[in-house]
Structure formats: structure tokens, C-alpha cells
Simulated scan of single mutants.
Amino acid sequence: MTDFAKGNIGNILKKFQSIIALLVLCIVLALMSDKFLTSENMWNIMRQISINVCISVGMTLVILTRGIDLSVGSILAFSGAVAAGLYKSGIEIPSMDLYIGFTILGAILAGFSVGGTLGAFNGWVITRFKIPSFVATLAMLTIARGATMLWTGGFPITGLGSNFAFIGTGWFLGIPMPVWITIVVVIIAMIITNRTKFGRYIYAIGGNESAARLSGINISKIKIWVYTIAGLLAAVGGIILTSRLDSAQPNAGLTYELDSIAAVVIGGTSLSGGRGSIIGTVQGALIIGVLNSGLVLLNVSPFWQQIIKGFVILFAVIMDRINHPNEE
């Protein structure tokens, strides 16, 4: 075999390594469990990964700019709790003898506003005070989690009704609603990253921020928008999760940021920024979802599941460094 042919094969394997890994994983799990390839399990996997995909799409944009967002799980919880609380109880102001009720749409928009606002605050702090994204979003992780506890009083907000539950458990044209929501999010994100000036600026900032600044790109503005979108998509995940559980749990979203980062890295997005894709992230989320499902079907201990997922993430990062050794 010629060096040219070997090079082509190597490039093909690198380009489709996520898909190949997913297919191999599915084949192995199908051989080990006769329940894996059932339609019920396949739809269950799709419903489960829908939340992670929404969060991971936002995380992809952040990592493409060479940042990180550790607060998405807490923002998810707070946004979902706000939407659930407003929908169920509204806002009462006894001193003014005033009660403000919320429709489902109004409550959802309020949840989105919370997520987007917290995300924008992340971006503003990072760009205004030149704080590393790791530190700023770690602080927001604690702030948003504390705000969730205050809002809920430490107790779940339950009994949201069948109309609200339809968002997370309903079906439309034979496909679960969370999957429809995820499809819309992914399509919009792909258009933004591949077809817009904003998307090109994201890649430019991650590739070389100094060069992007010299070319006239408003770095701060783009980063603030990126973190705003990440917060907004965390809120979308929060609405889906709250609807699916028919309750807003104070501890919702714990460790979701880790699954999100895992999906992004496994999908081929570089932690060094400037390289990656939305479709790759979707493939990464599918791998995580299939792995989770398979481990559950095989009755693997939850503690071992965490260890296995940790090694999968580590392997993905190592492979990224091997394939791109010159990136800082």
C-alpha cells in the first residue's frame, strides 16, 4: 500500500472516528444485551441525550472560543425551577394586593430569560475583568445552585400538569417532543456556525484571538453572545428536564457540565479552541448516551459507570493531542 493511500485512510479514520466508535459500541452492546436494539430503548436513549445535546451545543460554541463553562448544570436547574415556580404559583405581591399569573409560554420565556441573563453575566465578567472562564463559571455554578435552593426552599416544585409535561414526555408525528426540540436547536446551531459571520468569528477567536482582534473582530461582544447562548441552551435543557420529571428538583443538573464537556471533546472539538463542529458534538452525545444505556442494561454499578466515562473522556483528550500535537 502506498504512502498516499495510507494517508488517505488515516485521514478518513480521523474524520469519521466518532461515527466508527459509535457503530462499534452499538455492535458490542447489541451482542451483550438483547434489549439494546429494541425500539423502546432507542427512543429512550434519544430522549435522554436530548438534554445533553442542548447543553453541549452551547458548550461547543464556548470551547470553540477557547473557553469553558462549568455553570451550565446549575443554570439548567435554576431556569427550570423559575419556569416551574412561575407557572404553578405565579408572583404574589401582598402589599399591592397583586397577583401575576403565568401561562406555559410565559413561564418558559421567563426560564429562558434567566438562563440567557446568567450566561451573559458569565461572558461580561470574563471579558470585562479578564478572568479565566474556568474561574468565572465555577463561581456562577455556586451562585446559580444557591439561587435554585433559595427559589425552591430546598423542596421540589411538583404537580405542573399534563400540558407542561407534554414538552418532555409528549410525542408529535411519532417522535418524542424532546427530540424535536433538539433537532431544531442543532439545525439553528449548524446554520450559525457554518453560514454566518458570527460563526466565522467564533472560529477565528478560538484559532488565534490576537489575530482576530487585529482584524477588527469585537472579541468581547462575540464572547458575551457565546456565553449568553450557552446559558439559554442550558435553560432549554432545564425546561425539558423539569417537564419530563413533572417537577423542578433543587439538585437537578448535577454533573451535567461534565457530560456536556465529554460530548464536545469526544465529538472532536479541540479544547484549544478554533476546531470542531456541532454535528461532531451530537455524535459525542450519542456515544455518551449509548454508553450510559448499555452500562445500565448490563447492570454495571453506577460507581463503575462514572469511572468508565472518566476514562472515555481522558482517552478522547489524549487522542486529540496525538492527532494535533502542535496546538497549544
Rank of each mutant, 00 (worst) to 15 (best):
R200L: 10
Y201P: 00
Y201R: 14
Y201I: 00
Y201K: 15
I202E: 03
Y203I: 06
A204H: 13
A204R: 05
A204M: 12
I205Y: 06
G206E: 08
G206V: 05
N208R: 08
E209Y: 00
S210D: 14
A211C: 07
A211V: 15
A212F: 02
A212P: 01
A212W: 01
R213P: 07
L214T: 12
L214K: 15
S215L: 11
G216I: 12
G216V: 03
G216E: 13
I217A: 09
I217N: 12
N218G: 06
N218S: 15
I219V: 15
I219H: 07
S220T: 10
K221M: 13
K221W: 09
I222M: 13
K223A: 03
K223Y: 05
K223V: 08
I224D: 01
W225H: 11
Y227C: 08
Y227E: 12
T228I: 06
T228K: 01
T228G: 15
G231A: 05
G231P: 00
L232P: 08
L233I: 10
A235F: 05
A235I: 10
A235H: 04
A235K: 04
A235W: 02
V236R: 00
V236F: 04
V236S: 03
V236W: 03
G237P: 07
G238Q: 12
G238I: 11
I239Q: 09
I240D: 01
I240G: 03
L241A: 06
L241C: 04
T242N: 11
T242D: 05
T242K: 07
S243K: 05
R244H: 12
L245C: 02
D246A: 04
S247M: 13
S247P: 04
S247L: 12
S247K: 14
A248R: 04
A248N: 07
Q249T: 01
P250N: 09
P250K: 10
G253K: 03
T255Q: 15
T255Y: 12
Y256T: 09
Y256M: 15
E257V: 04
E257R: 09
L258V: 15
L258P: 00
L258Y: 06
D259V: 06
D259W: 08
S260H: 02
I261Q: 10
I261G: 05
I261E: 11
I261C: 00
I261V: 15
A262Q: 08
A262M: 14
A263H: 07
V264F: 06
V264K: 07
V264T: 09
V265Y: 03
V265L: 12
V265K: 06
V265H: 03
I266L: 15
G267R: 00
G268R: 01
T269K: 04
T269S: 09
S270C: 07
S270N: 12
S270T: 08
S270D: 06
L271T: 08
S272C: 11
G274W: 05
G274Q: 05
G274V: 01
S277V: 05
I278K: 04
I278N: 02
V282R: 03
V282L: 12
V282P: 05
A285H: 01
I287S: 03
I287H: 00
I287R: 06
V290P: 00
V290W: 00
L291C: 01
N292Y: 02
N292R: 15
G294Y: 04
G294D: 11
V296E: 11
L297S: 09
L297R: 02
L297C: 09
